[in-house]
Design a protein around this nucleic acid. Sequence first.
DNA 1: ACAAAAGTGTTTTCACTACACCCATGA
DNA 2: TCATGGGTGTAGTGAAAACACTTTTGT
Lengths: 229, 229
Amino acid sequence: MLNDYSKEDKVLLAVDCIIFGFDGEDLKILLIKRDFEPEKGKWSLIGGFLKKEENLDKAAIRILNHLTGLDNIYMEQLYTFSKVDRDPAERTISTAYYALIDIESHNNEFTNVETSKWFSLKNAPDLIFDHNRMVERAVSRLKYRTKTKPIGFELLPEKFTMLQLQNLYESILNEKLDKRNFTSKINALDILIKLKEKDMGSSKKGSYLYTFDAEKYNKKLKEGFVFKI
Amino acid sequence: MLNDYSKEDKVLLAVDCIIFGFDGEDLKILLIKRDFEPEKGKWSLIGGFLKKEENLDKAAIRILNHLTGLDNIYMEQLYTFSKVDRDPAERTISTAYYALIDIESHNNEFTNVETSKWFSLKNAPDLIFDHNRMVERAVSRLKYRTKTKPIGFELLPEKFTMLQLQNLYESILNEKLDKRNFTSKINALDILIKLKEKDMGSSKKGSYLYTFDAEKYNKKLKEGFVFKI
DNA sequence: ACAAAAGTGTTTTCACTACACCCATGA
DNA sequence: TCATGGGTGTAGTGAAAACACTTTTGT
């Protein structure tokens, strides 16, 4: 006996992406103005539909790349949203992914999408469908992840100052941190390389630049190291 | 302009359930022997397909109820698995849910499914498709949740002893805990009611029974209390 | 010389860990 | 009376939090 799959309902499976960015000040998300019905003209996450011959991770990468031109971006599956009437036009299920990108380094690559815009999380507009809930869930996942994995660096340029890193963590966790405690905690992790180079942009004295040492981090992981902030 | 949803691929969306139970000794999962092709005769999670007019949570509840008769069970969405050839018979996506049930109290309700069986996690058989990966992910989610939410109580009878609770945490976290430290940590949480009643089954002295005080817990939550073990 | 941001240590506090003996009871 | 599991407290250790002054340099 073969189970009769053919009797079962098939559905459209969408993928929506919450794209986080950081400009040194605020945590931001990238939104687009929808240029088709339903909800034309309202702000929305970028999204698309899963194709039969790809898996969800691939679909998310494709959709992100298609709308932003970006490649090689940190992405993670978040949750699958399935309220029956979530899309008034048609029964769709949506698997949400979130992505972390460094705004500064990729600023010029966005020219092909005139309708997209970065919003500070705090004053982002209302979104279509259940996209607000998706963003909420993404934010809380991001909080958790940054405490337990070094994914924060995905949001920063390759070289960054300790203060930028602290600002990033403060934006994500939405709380003030103590400068000395933060610095010594990060230094204790021993996964950054302190460069000879200084960033002279923000002060007369200048502040040292750091990079994330992925190789060292992975080596430490294998030895049982646990990232924790 | 309307986006042309009709050009997009539709897929079968399955729901698979990892059902955890606890018998006072070991953490267990409920599996069924598949009685249809493909993979007939092999062990598998219980599953079914999403129907057009229900959301995933409802589908998971329906599937669990249909195969076990159980109702009012803690369930949580885990992850959506989408490898292209995960089901050799047909392109399906599967959203996994995990459920927590108290084996003792529901032991008799399983009579309608002769092909289902509880397995200790440690010596569970190999499962079909990507179900092993689903179980792995469920176990690690369960570990995290039990540390940060009082969901462990879902796996115990309404009344339980401190030792049962400790055994449960030891099974889930897969490590030995210190009896005195565990007891005082739990007592410090102040979310259990110590009953006058004793369980005389396991010793001559008898051990006090407790129940989870959901009302108190919710009240404390509102006041900013953070559950942490 | 002074303004403005960078950089740096110590003390206190609190949570977590390790650890061992008496109690109550049924047989 | 003794064997069995139940129940309980304290001291020590280590991580996190609180906290302020000196350095550098461009203007």
